[in-house]
Design a protein around this nucleic acid. Sequence first.
DNA 1: CAACATACGGAACCTTGTTCCGTCTGTCTA
DNA 2: TAGACAGACGGAACAAGGTTCCGTATGTTG
Lengths: 196, 196
Amino acid sequence: MMADVDAQAEHGRPRKRADARRNEQTLLDAAAAVFVAAGVEAPVRDIAAKAGVGLGTIYRHFPTRADLIIAVYRHQAEACAQAGPDLLASGIAPHLALTRWIDLFVDFLVTKHGLAAALQPDNPEYAPLHAYILDRLVPACAQLLDAAVAAGEIRSDVDALGLMHGIGNLCIGSDDPNYDARRMIELVLAGLRTPR
Amino acid sequence: MMADVDAQAEHGRPRKRADARRNEQTLLDAAAAVFVAAGVEAPVRDIAAKAGVGLGTIYRHFPTRADLIIAVYRHQAEACAQAGPDLLASGIAPHLALTRWIDLFVDFLVTKHGLAAALQPDNPEYAPLHAYILDRLVPACAQLLDAAVAAGEIRSDVDALGLMHGIGNLCIGSDDPNYDARRMIELVLAGLRTPR
DNA sequence: CAACATACGGAACCTTGTTCCGTCTGTCTA
DNA sequence: TAGACAGACGGAACAAGGTTCCGTATGTTG
C-alpha cells in the first residue's frame, strides 16, 4: 500500500501541521526564557503561560520535562560532544585536552540553573535527559580519558561514566557564592594525575 | 535530691504531657523505619500513618521535615562530629586523620537514602538540616583541615565548608551501582595532597 | 468547500505539603 | 474524686504542581 509520494515519505513520518510546528518553536523559545529566569525545574504551567499555549499542547510536544530540556540545550550539548575529538586532534597533551573538555562541560552545566541537580539518575522524570547525556557526552569523555590513560598521564582506575557523574554532582549548588565547584573539580583532576 | 516540685524547673520549660512525649518517640521510630524503606523524602503522610497519628501531630512535633531528620540522625551526627577531635588526638598524621574522618562522614551519608541530596542548601525545606551540619560537622572538618595544612601535608586553598559541600555532592546517587562515590572522593583527597 | 485527521485549550484529577480548628484528654487543684 | 483548662489530637480543607482527557477548533486534502 501507500504508494503515495508526499512530503512525509522524505523523513518517514507524516509532516506536521503548520500550527504544530509553530507552537513547538514558540515553546522552545518560551522554555529557554523561563529556564534562564527560574531554572529548569520551573512549573510546566509557567512555560505554557509564557508561550501562550494550553497545558495539553506542551505535553503533546514534549511528553516529559526532560524532552523539553534536551530540545532546548541540544545544540550546546552537541557542541560539547564535538569538542572532544577536536581537542584530542589539536595536538595538546591528552590530559590537557581532558581538562579543557571538562571545563567546557562544567561551563555548560553551571550556566543552567538546576540542570546539574536534574541529572541525578534516580529521578525518573529526567530519565530521557540522562540517557541523552550517556549517549552523547559520556563517549566523548571516554575517548579523552582513554587517550590520557594510554599516554600514561593519569591513573587508569576511573571510568568515564563515574567521572561524569562525579563532575556533574560537583556542579550542583554552584550558585552558592560560598561554594566553588571548579576548585573541587580541579582537585579531582589533580587526583587523577596522581599515581595509584 | 532537692525539692524539685516540678520537673520542669530543671530545664526551664514546662514538662510536656505524657501523650505528647509518647507520640514524639513513636514518630521518631516510625520516621526512622520509613526513611530506611523509602528515603528521607518519603511523604509526611506515610510517616504519620506508620506512626498511627494524624498529620497535625507530626507537624506540631516537627515543624519541618528537616527537624525530623535531624532528630532521627542526631546521635550518629554527633558521633561523627566527636570523632574529629578524637582522630586528631590519636597521634596519626593529620592528613590521615582527615581521610579517616571523611570516611566516617561518607559512611554516614551513603547509608541514608536521599540524605546527601537533601543537603543541597538551595532547598528551603531543609534549611534547618543544613544549619545543623554547618554548626556541628563543618567545624570538626575545619579542625582536621587546619591541622593537615599546618603540617604542610595538604594544599591550603580549600576551606572546610567547600570541601564538605563537595564531598556531600559526590555522595549523591551512591545507590547507583555504576557510580562509586568513594572513588571520586579518593581522587579529591589525592588532589588535596598535591602541591598548588 | 466538505470532510477528516490533527492539534488545541483547559477543566479535572492526583499527589504531597501545610494550615486550621473543633474535639478530646492529661494534669492540677479544690 | 470531680471540675476546669491548657495542651494535644485528628483530619478536613486548601495550595501547588504534574498529568490526563476530551470537546472544540482548525489545517489540509481531495
